[in-house]
Amino acid sequence: MEALRLVLLYVHLIGFALLLGGAIAQYVSGRLRINAAMLWGSVIGLLTGIGLSAPLRDGDEPAPAKLVTKLVLALLIFVMVFFSRKRETVNRGHFLAIVGLTLVNAAVAVFWR
């Protein structure tokens, strides 16, 4: 089970990299829109996050409040990305909120013990 958890964690980190990297690439280009990397990153992050929340460890489970917080953040990110994916340009505040929520989600994972 530990090997499965580690594979899920690895894929989860790839999803985070796709989401954040895609957003930074769009921001640097000056054209704020949702690209395929952001969409796939949000989908991968959400699905693997759900998989990681399954009780795969013996006695070392994360706090339920942390899991719910991360799920809510991941759902918000996914919804914001999914429903904006076909727009030619995305509002600057909306785009920065996606980036901010992505960073907050990573901070919850790292700093909440």
Rank of each mutant, 00 (worst) to 15 (best):
A3D: 10
R5I: 12
V7F: 05
V7W: 02
L8R: 06
Y10L: 14
V11I: 15
H12Y: 08
I14K: 04
G15A: 13
F16P: 00
F16E: 06
G21S: 10
I24Q: 01
Y27Q: 05
V28Y: 00
V28R: 09
S29F: 02
R31E: 13
R33Y: 00
N35C: 06
N35T: 03
A36G: 14
A36W: 14
A37Y: 15
A37M: 15
M38L: 12
M38D: 03
M38I: 08
L39P: 05
W40M: 06
W40R: 06
I44R: 11
I44Y: 08
I44H: 09
G45V: 14
T48D: 10
G49M: 09
I50A: 14
I50Q: 11
A54Y: 14
P55M: 04
P55N: 07
P55D: 07
P55C: 02
R57Q: 12
E61W: 09
A63W: 06
K66T: 07
V68F: 05
K70T: 13
K70S: 12
V72N: 03
A74E: 07
A74Q: 06
F78I: 00
M80C: 07
F82T: 05
R87K: 15
E88Y: 03
V90K: 01
V90N: 05
F95E: 00
F95W: 00
L101S: 01
L103G: 02
V104A: 09
V110G: 15
R113F: 04
R113V: 06
